Simulated assay, not measured.
Amino acid sequence: MSDNQGPSTPQQPSPGTSPNPSPQQPQQPNKDDKSSSLVNKIQELGQTNVAQMENSNIHCITVVGQIEGHMQLPPQNKTTKYEHIIPQLVAAEQNPKIEGLLLILNTVGGDVEAGLAMSEMVASMSKPTITIVLGGGHSIGVPIAVAADYSYIAETATMTIHPIRLTGLVIGVPQTFEYLDKMQDRVISFVTRHSNIEEETFKELMFAKGNLTRDIGTNVIGADAVKYGLIDEVGGIGLALKKLNQLIDEEKQKNGDMLQ
């Protein structure tokens, strides 16, 4: 005699239990967060990995492209905004951990007053300063290059020395040209005070004919800038950092002698 049993039903899990218990998996980092962080680094810095500089006693500032003044340049222009550089210089001067400043230039020049403002800030710093001209330090980049305690230029780098020019609407009255002359005198005075070049030599380079096509001015390259007394030495990053550390040590010794 056989028992008539109905179809069997699967056993239901009790409340609060998992049907297939498994050990808890460690939470994986979000790949989207990693990729977005990487994209931000590339957009802001142009590279994926940046050396950590938290423990460095040297602050590095780059002046590249065109120096932007009171007028905003088109977005496709590579620019250095002086309102960004000046607060960095103030912070470097105030920060006790920063003992020296390294300024790297590859600029075509730009706004005269903005460039002179940056130059005066660098020249008035109490901490040791070094500049390196890489690629080019043209036009108003010349005063910035000579503003430091010691300056270097790469062997293939160039510096264009030319008179001040105006762009845009110019009122053709004697006062305009007088203003231009006074502004030009400010540049000449600053460069001759902060370098070894003679004023007459600098003016000869500025107003030379034939060096620049259909224009006046002179393009000096590497060793020529040193020969004229505009730059102190031909060299790159290695020599610049060595010199800067030497100046920092001298500054420490001088301060130590003053405290004794």
Rank of each mutant, 00 (worst) to 15 (best):
V142A: 07
I164T: 05
G217K: 08
I231V: 13
I153P: 05
I161H: 11
V220H: 01
G222K: 02
E199N: 06
G168F: 13
I144F: 15
K227Q: 13
K203E: 07
P174I: 00
E155F: 08
E155A: 15
S195C: 02
T160N: 11
G229L: 03
G235M: 06
V108L: 08
N219K: 14
G235Y: 10
I132V: 12
L230Y: 04
I188M: 09
I144G: 00
L169Q: 11
G210R: 05
D224G: 05
S124G: 07
E200H: 10
G222R: 03
K182F: 14
G109N: 12
P143R: 01
T167V: 09
D149M: 12
K227Y: 13
S126G: 15
E199L: 06
T213W: 12
G210C: 05
E155K: 14
T156Q: 14
G135P: 10
F190M: 02
I153S: 04
I171S: 08
T107F: 03
M206T: 12
A145W: 09
H194C: 05
Q184D: 14
D181H: 12
V108E: 10
S124L: 01
G172Y: 10
Y179F: 11
K182S: 11
L116I: 12
N219R: 14
T213E: 14
T192Q: 02
S151T: 09
G172Q: 13
E198T: 12
G115F: 10
T218N: 02
Q175F: 07
G217H: 06
G141A: 04
E178R: 10
L205V: 04
I164Q: 07
G235T: 05
V170L: 12
V142F: 08
M159T: 13
E155L: 13
E198P: 01
D232Y: 00
G135R: 07
A117L: 11
Y228P: 06
T158A: 12
L166R: 13
A123R: 00
G210I: 11
A147Q: 05
